[in-house]
């Protein structure tokens, strides 16, 4: 009997003349070209998706928090209410004192407040995309500060309505600072993922917990040493530094011109 050959369909073989993947690459390349040629329009189109992502994330957090231990949540709620009341009183006293100080600060003292559209870890390059651009007075080289006046990065790109902040923790970014009460000078290197590292002499005796500062109005804390890695054969140690402001949850930043030129923050490999 003649055997009729029938080609079995294989799930791994494409079933169309033009594969979906090739179409996807063409669309992705078009998106990349769009972002390069008209970045302001590109971000105007995609920013609603990021807003929806933030809303979804906060909704999910609220939903999952409802599954927590009720007694523990009630106790934590009471503790937070007590602390909130104490902080409100302290805040009021500080507000009275700061009224005089604010009068002495220049008009650019408070800076431009901008909301964050995209942040790590969605962004793999340790950058923030802000919903404020040149029309709001944002200029390249301005320094970005998170809550509490913690410096987090600098404006590397300013479009009409949006801007991009490169974090100090971005790989390739080098910042000068110092650590601890002994003010040991450091060259702080970004390692990505919101973290930094620096090299110090073993004799400096830098311990975990030491606060790392960068120059600014006064001295500004940028993070703290969480681990000291040492090689017995080396005269220096590597300090692993965690940021003071969590870049994964920054919602607002304040932008100020601190007078440092745009290229002064970055090494030759950074934007």
């Amino acid at each position: 009997m003649k055997r009729i050959f029938s080609a079995r369909r294989n799930a791994l073989l494409p079933q169309q003349a033009v594969s979906r993947g090739a179409v996807a690459v063409a669309v992705a390349a078009a998106l990349y070209a769009f972002s390069a040629l008209a970045p302001n329009a590109f971000w105007a189109v995609v920013s609603p998706a990021f807003r929806a992502s933030d809303a979804l994330a906060s909704g999910a957090r609220s939903f999952l928090a409802g599954f927590g231990n009720t007694a523990a949540l009630a106790a934590r709620n009471e503790d937070l209410a007590r602390k909130n009341s104490a902080l409100a009183s302290e805040n009021e006293a500080l507000r009275q004192n700061s009224a005089d100080v604010t009068a002495l600060v220049s008009a650019a003292g408070s800076g431009i407040v901008a909301s964050v559209i995209a942040r790590p870890p969605e962004s793999p390059y340790d950058t923030l995309v802000l919903a404020a651009g040149a029309k709001s007075g944002v200029a390249r080289g301005m320094e970005a500060f998170a809550a509490g006046g913690v410096p987090v990065g600098f404006v590397s790109e300013a479009l009409d309505d949006f801007s991009r902040v490169t974090l100090f923790s971005s790989p390739g970014v080098v910042t000068d600072g110092w650590v601890g009460q002994a003010n040991v000078p450091l060259t702080i290197r970004g390692t990505g993922g919101g973290a930094f590292e620096a090299t110090a002499a073993r004799d400096a005796a830098v311990a975990p917990g030491a606060v790392v500062f960068v120059p600014g109005p006064g001295q500004l804390p940028i993070g703290s040493v969480v681990r000291v890695d040492s090689d017995p054969l080396s005269p220096s140690v590597t300090l692993r530094i965690a940021p003071a402001a969590n870049p994964f949850s920054i919602a607002w930043v304040s932008l100020r011109a601190t007078g440092v030129p745009p290229g002064a923050f970055a090494s030759s490999t950074a934007p």
């Binding site: 990349y32 950058t127 490169t166």
Partner: peptide, 9 residues
């Protein structure tokens, strides 16, 4: 890259 890469990088 289109979303997150700084264009001068």
């Amino acid at each position: 890259e289109a979303l997150y890469r700084p264009h001068a990088a």
